[in-house]
């Protein structure tokens, strides 16, 4: 067993876990933040994407111990107060989700993508960037629309974040 400490959604947390514990298990089981999902065993599906030190990471690909001392943001930490993040709002407005299982990872990847490209995204780039996030319900059409719309709404703000 090892003790792991990190900042998750702005709160300092620590917990005991086995050395082999994955970050996603620590988030779900130790912290009870069940918005981050597990959809595969091989780091393909992206349902577990969170932000670690500002970058999108599949939380099934790293050990909890590797995130020791890091700043982690999960889907639960994205909205500020009662206000949805623009990407969350766009997913709802454009019907970019159905069963909701891939959605947290999709949204966390989309936020990272928009930040990295400073809001300057086109459809082809969005589709290529989503290679690591699998959705079985939507056929991606409305997810792509939602991300492009959020990117254009975030526009300048995203450009600042990217710089």
């Amino acid at each position: 067993m090892t003790t792991v400490s990190m900042t998750v959604n702005g709160r300092t947390v620590s917990g005991q876990c086995e050395d082999r514990t994955l970050l996603v298990q620590f988030i779900r089981e130790n912290l009870g933040l069940t918005g981050t999902h597990v959809g595969c065993d091989t780091s393909q599906c992206g349902a577990c994407v969170v932000h670690v030190d500002g970058k999108a990471v599949k939380s099934c690909t790293m050990l909890a111990a590797q995130a020791n001392g890091s700043e982690v943001m999960t889907i639960e930490g994205l909205a500020s107060g009662g206000d949805l993040h623009p990407v969350q709002a766009a997913f709802r407005e454009h019907h970019g989700l159905q069963c909701g299982f891939c959605t947290p990872g999709m949204i966390m990847s989309a936020v990272d993508m928009i930040n990295r490209y400073g809001g300057q995204l086109d459809e082809k780039t969005v589709r290529a960037e989503l290679e690591g996030n699998i959705c079985r319900c939507t056929g991606y059409h409305n997810i792509v629309k939602a991300i492009l719309d959020a990117a254009s709404k975030m526009g300048d703000g995203a450009r600042v974040a990217a710089e």
Binding site: L33, T34, G35, T36, T74, I75, E76, L78, A79, L84, Q88, F91, R92, L97, G100, F101, T103, P104, I107
Partner: peptide, 9 residues
């Protein structure tokens, strides 16, 4: 959608 996009499903 509210619960799904905020991780509360």
């Amino acid at each position: 959608d509210k619960r799904f996009i905020t991780g509360k499903g």
